[in-house]
């Protein structure tokens, strides 16, 4: 029982999300949820590396796009089916993670240098996808419409939402498990202090590589979802800066290095964005302006993100009370 307790918040959120496809009928809301949860999934991938591991990537589009393109090419050029395409896309993301991680972490890149290198990788991929024949060049790839569960295309948006929700829950449970595991503890340790972690026997390079592979795989899975839902990608969508920024914002606003943060952050950001759009009556770019404002507020007043608001209250002992006791010792 004790070991199951940490999973409770994930399960509660999971049940809430799972109820959505059953009760929501509005296509607008369903659309909103599918898109937002796809971003949330990608954000959880970013959060694993950036939030838990402290390795801030500015180029997670590299993984999102690789997942989407790999699956599209798998189906269209190689003629395989969508489900194995889902697996192939996810694995391609892990592979991209391994390559980018090996090149940058082995060279000892950290902090802003690592961030810049990931940004550069995403841009290189975007330019390549834009000019290469196999990715459809600037025209992009249009996945043929073949509705049917075997093709991962559903006539009913609610069914697709159910699939997305299931995937989000699986990933949240995975991240919750990682958090309590040795790998998770080592990942957080190297975020806090790499030298101290090494002294405690943490193989920093290996832990970082594991993290970026997993991170790449999760974000790539979100890329595949995007492809299967919208059935179209081009280099600006799949490898565009927008997704790199979205995942980073969702994780930071929701709560860095928390299990629920990315989902909460994505829902809050997109919710506020949609609200602003409808209230401002189609003023172009208003949702982006709101994003910016929310980010500034979150960084300034919510160091633990939205999830941190709840967390702060159940901290067992406030720092202030404890200090004098130690002083007497």
């Amino acid at each position: 029982m004790r070991t199951l307790r940490p999973y409770l918040p994930v399960l509660v959120l999971g049940v809430l999300l799972a109820l959505a496809p059953l009760f929501v009928t509005s296509n607008v809301v369903l659309n909103f949820l599918v898109f937002t949860l796809t971003v949330a999934l990608a954000a959880q991938g970013w959060n694993l590396l950036g939030g838990f591991g402290g390795q801030f990537s500015f180029g997670h589009a590299a993984f999102f796009g690789t997942g989407a393109y790999a699956s599209a090419i798998w189906q269209m050029q190689l003629g395989f089916d969508a489900w194995t395409g889902f697996v192939a896309g996810t694995l391609a993301g892990a592979l991209a993670g391994l390559v980018i991680g090996f090149l940058s972490f082995r060279a000892g890149l950290r902090g802003s240098y690592f961030a810049l290198v990931t940004l550069a990788f995403a841009e290189v991929f975007r330019v390549l996808a834009n000019s290469s024949e196999v990715t459809g060049g600037a025209a992009g790839l249009l996945l043929p419409l073949k509705i049917g569960a075997e093709n991962l295309q559903f006539a009913d948006r609610a069914t697709f939402l159910g699939f997305v929700v299931a995937l989000v829950i699986v990933v949240l449970l995975l991240v919750q498990w990682i958090r309590g595991s040795r790998f998770g503890a080592q990942l957080v340790a190297l975020r806090e202090n790499e030298e101290a972690a090494r002294a405690l026997g943490v193989d920093v390079l290996v832990v970082k590589l594991k993290a970026i592979c997993l991170s790449g795989a999760i974000t790539a899975a979100a890329g595949v979802l995007y492809l299967q839902y919208f059935l179209f990608i081009d280099s600006g969508i799949a490898y565009g800066t927008w997704i790199s920024v979205e995942v980073l914002l969702a994780a930071i606003v929701g709560g860095l290095g928390t299990v629920l943060g990315p989902v909460v952050g994505a829902l809050a950001l997109h919710g506020v964005g949609e609200l602003a759009k409808s209230l401002a009556g189609g003023l172009p770019g208003i949702d982006l302006a709101v994003y910016g404002a929310v980010l500034v507020v979150a960084v300034a007043f919510l160091p633990g993100g939205l999830v941190g608001i709840v967390r702060r209250r159940d901290r067992p002992r406030p720092v202030r009370d404890a200090a004098p006791v130690e002083g007497e010792a």
């Binding site: 040795r182 957080v188 340790a189 975020r191 806090e192 202090n193 972690a197």
Partner: peptide, 17 residues
């Protein structure tokens, strides 16, 4: 070099792992 963001127990657990 404490892992400042973690609790005392979590700090030591990293070594124990």
């Amino acid at each position: 070099k404490p892992f400042a963001g973690l609790s005392v127990l979590e700090n030591i657990v990293v070594g124990a792992f």
